[in-house]
Amino acid sequence: MDCGICYAYQLDGTIPDQVCDNSQCGQPFHQICLYEWLRGLLTSRQSFNIIFGECPYCSKPITLKMS
């Protein structure tokens, strides 16, 4: 499936590997796309290497662990 942010399947050789945990959403994202999206939200917060925010599609909580 394509990334829900950039709408591409491959981005710099990677495929969407982050998925919204909401079973009714399940939208996939590239890690870098989701990172940039969450960084741009005023409501997002970060604790060590984990960013907490809202899914761009369903607005439910989503987390991103940076590797």
Rank of each mutant, 00 (worst) to 15 (best):
G40Q: 15
E36W: 07
G13M: 02
L42P: 14
C20G: 01
T63M: 06
S59R: 15
Q10M: 12
L41A: 08
Y9F: 07
D21Q: 07
T43D: 05
E54K: 10
L38H: 04
Y7Q: 13
R45G: 11
Q24E: 07
L11M: 14
C20R: 00
W37P: 00
G13S: 12
L42C: 13
F48Q: 13
D17T: 10
W37Q: 12
T43Y: 12
F29E: 03
P28I: 05
L11V: 11
D17L: 08
D12E: 06
Y9C: 02
L11G: 01
R39C: 05
P28F: 07
S59L: 07
D2I: 08
F48G: 15
Q27A: 07
R39I: 03
F48N: 15
C6G: 00
H30E: 00
S47A: 10
I62Q: 00
W37R: 02
L42R: 12
I32H: 10
I32M: 12
G13D: 04
L42G: 07
F29R: 00
C20S: 00
A8T: 12
I32N: 04
Y35Q: 07
C6K: 00
P28T: 04
R39V: 04
S23L: 10
C25W: 01
Y9K: 07
R39K: 11
W37E: 02
Q31M: 05
F48P: 15
I62F: 07
L41C: 10
Q18Y: 05
E36K: 08
C55P: 01
F29G: 00
S23K: 08
P56W: 04
Y9Q: 09
Y7R: 15
C20E: 02
L34A: 01
I32D: 05
R45T: 15
Q24N: 11
I32E: 09
S23G: 07
C58K: 00
Y57M: 14
S44W: 06
F48A: 10
M66T: 09
I62K: 00
A8K: 13
L64G: 09
Y7E: 08
P56N: 02
T43V: 08
P61F: 05
D17S: 10
W37A: 11
R39H: 09
Q31D: 06
I62W: 03
G53S: 06
L34T: 00
D21W: 13
S23I: 15
P56L: 02
L11T: 03
D12V: 04
C25I: 06
S23T: 07
S47T: 11
T43M: 02
Y57C: 13
Q18N: 10
Q46G: 07
L64A: 14
P28W: 12
H30Y: 01
L34K: 00
E36H: 06
N22S: 04
I50T: 10
Q31E: 09
Q31L: 11
H30V: 00
D2E: 11
K65S: 14
Q27C: 03
Y7F: 14
Q18E: 13
P61V: 03
P16S: 02
W37C: 08
L38Q: 08
A8E: 14
Y35L: 08
H30N: 02
I5Y: 01
K65D: 13
C55D: 02
G53Q: 02
Q18K: 09
V19E: 05
P16R: 01
G13E: 06
C58D: 01
L64W: 07
A8F: 02
Y9V: 04
N22Q: 04
C58R: 00
L38G: 05
Q31F: 10
D17H: 10
L41D: 13
T63C: 15
T63Y: 11
C3G: 01
Q31S: 13
A8C: 15
L34N: 04
R39E: 07
G26Q: 13
D2G: 05
D17V: 11
I32L: 10
S23D: 15
Q18R: 04
G13W: 01
E36S: 13
C25A: 00
C58Q: 00
S47V: 10
I15K: 07
Q27I: 11
S23Q: 11
N22G: 04
D12K: 06
S47W: 04
L34V: 08
I15M: 07
I50A: 10
N22E: 00
C20T: 00
D17G: 03
I50D: 13
L64S: 15
Y9A: 03
R39N: 15
Y7P: 00
I62T: 05
H30P: 00
G26M: 09
Q24W: 06
Y7G: 09
C6I: 03
F48V: 14
P16A: 04
E36G: 08
P28E: 07
T43L: 05
Q46C: 08
E36D: 15
Q46W: 08
Y57Q: 11
T63G: 13
T14F: 06
Y9I: 14
H30L: 07
D2K: 13
C3R: 02
Q24T: 12
Y57T: 15
D2N: 12
Q31K: 08
Q46L: 09
Q18T: 11
T63W: 11
L41G: 13
C25G: 02
I50Y: 13
S59A: 08
I62R: 02
T63V: 04
Q10S: 11
L34M: 03
M66L: 07
P61D: 10
R39A: 09
Q10D: 14
I5W: 01
S47E: 15
L38S: 03
Q27T: 11
L42T: 14
G26V: 05
F48R: 11
Q27W: 03
Q10V: 12
Y57E: 12
D17P: 02
P16W: 02
A8V: 06
V19I: 09
F48L: 12
D2V: 08
G40A: 04
S59T: 15
Q46V: 14
C20D: 01
Y7D: 09
T43Q: 09
I32W: 11
Q10F: 13
V19K: 12
L41Q: 15
Q27R: 10
Y57W: 05
D21S: 09
L64D: 11
Q27S: 05
R39G: 06
F48D: 15
I15T: 10
S59Q: 12
Q10N: 10
D12N: 03
L42K: 15
P61R: 15
G26P: 04
Q27E: 03
Q27K: 06
